[in-house]
């Protein structure tokens, strides 16, 4: 199993990607896509220097839905900030202590932060234990930190068990 399919999720993703790209589903396309989905991970898995193991896929799906809703809400917030006079805004630049470890979870958390309400992750600290975050309009930095911790980081911790 692991000899032929070193990365089953990547293979599945490649197959779905191929079918979407072709924009049709037929027997021949699925066969060709399956061949690609097996060959490409075999050829590239030596270059993957991180291992990713999703322990709880269901929470991952829930996380994606939550993220989508938050993205839409954050867009309304940003639109409101842009359309109000500029005197009102109060940006902040703060460090966020990380609880999770591992490259993939931290990358996912940083991307999540960049996509959600008024925050952008700007830099990983030198020691790899904190993220520098720029927020567009906050009055209470601690509340933002708490929100990130409770809403996203805890779920990621559960998904990847790290």
């Amino acid at each position: 199993m692991s000899k032929i399919l070193p990365a089953p999720w990547l293979s599945l993703f490649l197959l779905v990607f191929w079918l979407l790209l072709q924009n049709s589903v037929s027997f021949g396309l699925i066969i060709l896509g399956a061949v690609f989905a097996v060959l490409i991970p075999l050829y590239t898995h030596r270059a993957r220097d991180f291992s990713i193991r999703v322990r709880k896929p269901l929470i991952l799906v829930q996380y994606a839905v939550l993220l989508l809703i938050d993205i839409i809400i954050s867009n309304f917030n940003i639109a409101a900030v842009i359309l109000t006079p500029r005197r009102k805004i109060k940006p902040a630049l703060f460090e966020y202590p990380l609880d999770i470890t591992g490259e993939v979870p931290i990358t996912m958390l940083a991307s999540t932060i960049s996509l959600t309400p008024g925050t952008i992750s700007a830099e990983l600290g030198r020691d790899g234990r904190s993220l520098l975050i720029h927020a567009l309009n906050v009055h209470d930095v601690e509340a933002v930190k708490r929100q990130i911790k409770e809403r996203y980081e805890r779920r990621l911790q559960e998904i990847f068990q790290c």
């Binding site: 940003i78 639109a79 842009i82 500029r86 940006p91 630049l93 952008i120 700007a122 720029h134």
Partner: peptide, 15 residues
């Protein structure tokens, strides 16, 4: 119209 670079970064990436 946002005032500095770091705040300007927020608008296009999300909206």
């Amino acid at each position: 119209r946002l005032p500095d670079f770091m705040t300007r970064l927020h608008a296009p990436t999300k909206n």
